[in-house]
Design a protein around this nucleic acid. Structure first.
Lengths: 201, 201
DNA sequence: TAAAGGTAAGTGAGCGCTTAGATTCGGCTC
DNA sequence: GAGCCGAATCTAAGCGCTCACTTACCTTTA
């Protein structure tokens, strides 16, 4: 199969990209149900019917956003912790990566954390599976640190849940025009995470 | 003014209570825009028009829920930290109270944290003011601990924000049928909060 | 000539809210 | 104590609009 895209295929790619981006912005600002397909189409510079040339339904737009967003996070967090490193370095890296994603991509992060109730049962199961994989990465890191004696927390599962909450809630309040940068937050939360799990100095 | 309520007044009280409760449940499950006034009326055992006998608009229902919810939290957190106590005891009490509210009243908490975009500008300003008051209580507690030497954190403002995030995000994932009780979470998060702010043992 | 992307116009359903009338309650007068 | 009248709560029915999505056709591409 040739990798070369015809101009018609390229045109379709651009339209889909514009529709997805417009949907992310609108879903983040107004929620899934507060956003109309006319809102999305207009922001994408297309007619309302064009939405259905590229997607079966409004819900499918949300699903595509949710799948992609979770895949990006899972890969980033998994990669951040792959290097041979101490448990403390791995937890710090995972939290830093998680916080950076939620701060930098807070618009997408709002959609993929707060609008999932609008998905079909089948699509929701798929996303839940991806979320469990992310949860598992974090929980395994904390438990590994407890086993090795590097961490001291009475409840690794609750500690891991708390670390994830720090990143997720950030998506709710973070604003690009705020005074805290994603990097500053990532550094601070990574340090806070080590204190939270009782990492030995 | 007599405190005795006539049966007509009592009937109105009951209807308003049922409408508000129905609205909380529906807004929490489906979001403000995903909920119709017919949904709310039916769940309250009333007709769609009855909503407008008691409230000027659907948005006013949300506003009433948001004001009440925030007032309850602000009072609870302020009261929890009023007793003469050490900075560590006060931060622990504030976090414990905050987490208990978000776990026990997670349905209400979801509405008052995630559906505010549907409020009018005027109503949103009112809620923002209440939220700032809550934020200030937490931040002042952390800063006081740093001043007294009881806490060791490089950034009290970010630390306070992190503590609030723990409680708020809990509302998103907590389920009554889960294995973690509100009390267990409150105790754990209170301890984690002390570690996060670098409270000296 | 078929395929792909696009649009104007439209469909059937549901939305937030309003109106007109019914029922019950409660204060007041006789 | 009875009757009257306004107030409060409630409902059936409806209004004007918007919704998600579909259809029939056009233009360009391959």
């Amino acid at each position: 199969m040739s990798d070369v895209r015809t101009s018609t295929q390229a045109r379709g790619d651009r339209s889909r990209a514009r529709l997805l981006d417009a949907a992310v912005q609108a879903f983040s600002a107004k929620g899934f149900h507060g956003t109309s397909t006319r809102d999305i189409a207009t922001a994408a510079g297309l007619s309302p019917a064009a939405v259905y040339v590229h997607h079966r339904s409004k819900e499918e737009l949300l699903h595509a956003i949710a799948v992609r967003g979770h895949e990006v996070i899972l890969e980033a967090v998994t990669d951040a912790t792959r290097a041979d490193a101490s448990p403390a370095e791995r937890v710090a890296a995972a939290v830093r990566t998680y916080v950076l994603f939620h701060a930098r991509s807070h618009t997408t992060a709002r959609v993929i954390n707060y609008e999932l109730a609008a998905l079909t049962d089948e699509h929701l199961r798929e996303i839940a599976s991806l979320r469990r994989a992310i949860d598992t990465v974090m929980r395994d890191l904390v438990e590994e640190g407890v086993r090795s004696g590097d961490f001291d927390t009475p409840d690794p599962a609750k500690a891991a849940t708390a670390l994830l909450s720090l990143g997720i809630d950030l998506a709710r309040w973070y604003r690009d025009d705020g005074s805290w940068t994603p990097e500053a937050l990532a550094d601070f939360y990574a340090d806070l995470a080590l204190r939270a799990v009782g990492a030995r100095p």
